[in-house]
Amino acid sequence: MFNFNGELFSKDREILNYNNRGFKYGDALFETIRCINGNVFFWEDHYFRLMSSMRILRMEIPMEFTLEFLEEEIKKVVANNGLENTAARVRLTIFRKDGGLYSPITNDVSYLIEVGTLESPFYLLSSDSYEVELFKDYFVNKDMLSNLKTTNKILNVVAGVYAQENGYENCILINNDKQVVEVINGNLFLVKDNAIKTPPLSDGCLDGIIRKKLIEIIKKTEGLELQEDSISPFELQKADELFITNSISGIRPITKYRKKDYRNSTGKSLLGKLNAKARIDQF
């Protein structure tokens, strides 16, 4: 079942029509969230990012869209899918209501919540081979819209097709200045000695929830130095480790880029701290 504007429908029910603005113009935002045993992970961070993004896109925020209201709407659809005692993946999509061309006739919004199962209640570190390549056909813009989690993701889609066609698990995206920004489905971190580097938001990367949490962890970890700074593609093969972060996988080590093979000891250590932070967040 899924939740559309507070009402539950079976998965085979057709709700959205041809005039939907998310479909026609990508006029939508979304959050992908972990829900474990009925607890929504890092919910405050997801909520405040969503509210901030709605303001930036000039969407009207309904009075009932409180932290508590949306959390209960998520839990309602999780429970009605029988996932309240296990690990669930939640997607909350907000889109402007139908009407208009590029200029909408209303800034009022609708929401849709869908859920699926997850393999584990904890973030796990995969040891599988994970090879990536630089995607250079199109570029991420260096502006605030690139920081938002919108449904305008055609660059990511084309990069995903490129990865499939060439046998890669993922692609690294770059901006117009040819600086590394992120990967198709998350933020990127580079480890060199005791320094951990990630691109700044001003370079156009997604303002990721796990990126934010990991930055907090690294700053508090003795012996590690955080650097939010631009990354040149030339730095990638000089790194000791590369890893990806997102709300579903947590930390995903990259094992190979071109001729360079990477270790994952720092990523493994940080994953334990991230799991601990996620548990503390629930209390």
Rank of each mutant, 00 (worst) to 15 (best):
L124M: 14
G223C: 09
Q282H: 05
T117W: 03
G22A: 15
V158D: 00
P233F: 09
E228A: 02
Y168V: 11
A28R: 10
E228Y: 00
G267A: 13
M59Y: 13
E119T: 14
S10T: 14
L29E: 11
T93M: 15
I15Q: 06
S230V: 03
M1W: 04
E73R: 11
R252W: 11
K259Q: 10
D207I: 02
E169T: 11
I215A: 06
L118C: 12
K76Q: 11
I251C: 05
S53V: 04
L118I: 15
I248Q: 04
Q282C: 08
E222M: 06
S127D: 15
I15Y: 04
K136M: 13
G82D: 13
K142H: 04
N80A: 14
F283S: 13
F42I: 10
G100D: 06
S129P: 06
V40L: 08
S230R: 04
H46F: 01
I154C: 00
K197N: 00
G160D: 02
R258V: 10
N152W: 00
N170C: 05
F9N: 06
L57V: 08
R34P: 00
V78S: 05
D27H: 12
G186D: 04
D45R: 09
L214E: 01
F122Q: 09
K220N: 15
F2N: 07
E7G: 05
D108G: 04
S126Q: 14
L201F: 01
A88H: 05
A195F: 06
E14G: 03
K277C: 13
E216Q: 15
N80V: 10
S52K: 13
N187P: 03
F41P: 00
V161A: 12
G204E: 01
P253N: 11
Y168P: 05
A79Q: 12
K24I: 14
N17I: 08
T32I: 06
N39M: 11
N175A: 14
L188R: 07
I209E: 04
V158I: 13
L236N: 07
D45E: 12
T86G: 15
L92E: 02
T221N: 11
V132F: 03
A163Q: 09
G100H: 05
L236T: 01
L125V: 15
F139W: 03
T66S: 14
G99F: 04
K277F: 12
R49S: 06
K11R: 12
Q227E: 02
T266N: 05
I56M: 13
F48K: 10
T266W: 00
G160V: 01
S265W: 02
E133R: 13
I154H: 00
R258H: 10
G99C: 10
V181F: 00
N185S: 13
N20F: 09
Y102I: 12
N246T: 05
I33P: 01
K219G: 11
K277M: 15
F69P: 07
N264P: 00
R58L: 09
V90E: 02
S247L: 10
S269R: 15
N81G: 12
L274M: 03
P200L: 14
T93E: 12
V183K: 02
T245V: 14
N19P: 04
Q227S: 03
L57H: 09
Q227V: 01
R258P: 01
D45H: 07
I196Y: 03
V109I: 15
N275E: 04
K259L: 12
T93F: 04
L242M: 09
N39D: 15
T255A: 08
F9K: 08
V77M: 07
T221F: 04
S53R: 05
T150I: 07
